[in-house]
Design a protein around this nucleic acid. Structure first.
Length: 215
DNA sequence: TACCAGGTCCTCG
DNA sequence: CGAGGACATGGT
């Protein structure tokens, strides 16, 4: 089967339409703090509107617990209460704690050590953490670790589907895209961000059809 | 009111 | 293994 989509040109088109996205939307300064915020945000955003995730992150920030040691020491119930707006709060609290325990025990709670590992080996380790699946693992690798791994999400599949590019396996999507693009983390970050911007734009138009009236 | 949002895990046949 | 369901809040 021949795939007509030109992924580089698609990127250019999206970039012209939406402009630079500068993802991931993180506010923290400093490498470790920023990694923490990205990782927690990536877990909280699973099947969840980003606006809800921001409420949860704001709760953690306001409570002064958005640091590795504070978050790691937080009781399950307290964590659940703070991240409640992001939904699935029981599951996600467990995942956040499992993730922090993993980083703590395997990498002394240091993200720079964790991301010093070879990407694919680290990916396998992340996938062994309960609650972290392929998309979340790849988001951590790409946005926190700056690894050239392309993140596949619902929007990405939605973008490819009209071109009859449909796979059963997550990794088939990833391979398809990675084989057709320069392996560059910044490029992948921006590209995936553009796909999400486009996806949100499209779905908002579906909800409220474009008015035929102009000006 | 119903449906959706930057998934993941578990169970059952 | 593949389909189906559970997990949960907030916005439109």
């Amino acid at each position: 089967m021949t795939h007509r989509i030109d992924l580089r040109r698609t990127y250019d088109r999206l970039y012209r339409q939406y402009g630079p996205q500068g993802w991931w939307p993180a506010t923290a300064c400093g490498y470790e703090a920023r990694c923490l915020e990205i990782c927690i945000g990536a877990i909280l955003t699973q099947h969840t509107n980003w606006a809800n995730v921001e409420k949860a992150l704001a709760n953690l920030r306001d409570a002064g617990v958005l640091t590795f040691p504070r978050l790691h020491a937080l009781p399950q119930r307290t964590l659940e209460r703070l991240i409640r707006p992001s939904g699935y709060y029981h599951q996600k609290a467990r995942t956040v704690r499992a993730f922090l325990a993993f980083v703590h025990s395997s990498y002394s709670a240091r993200f720079h050590r964790m991301f010093a590992q070879p990407s694919l080996a680290l990916r396998a380790e992340l996938l062994s953490v309960r609650g972290i699946g392929k998309e979340t693992a790849d988001s951590l690798l790409l946005y926190a670790g700056n690894k050239p791994i392309f993140v596949i999400d619902a929007y990405t599949k939605r973008l490819l589907a009209p071109h009859s590019i449909v796979f059963k396996e997550y990794d088939d999507y990833r391979t398809f895209i990675e084989r057709r693009l320069p392996r560059n983390a910044k490029y992948f970050q921006e590209y995936h961000a553009l796909i999400v911007a486009h996806g949100k734009n499209e779905s908002s138009q579906n909800r409220r059809p474009v008015s035929t009236r102009r000006r």
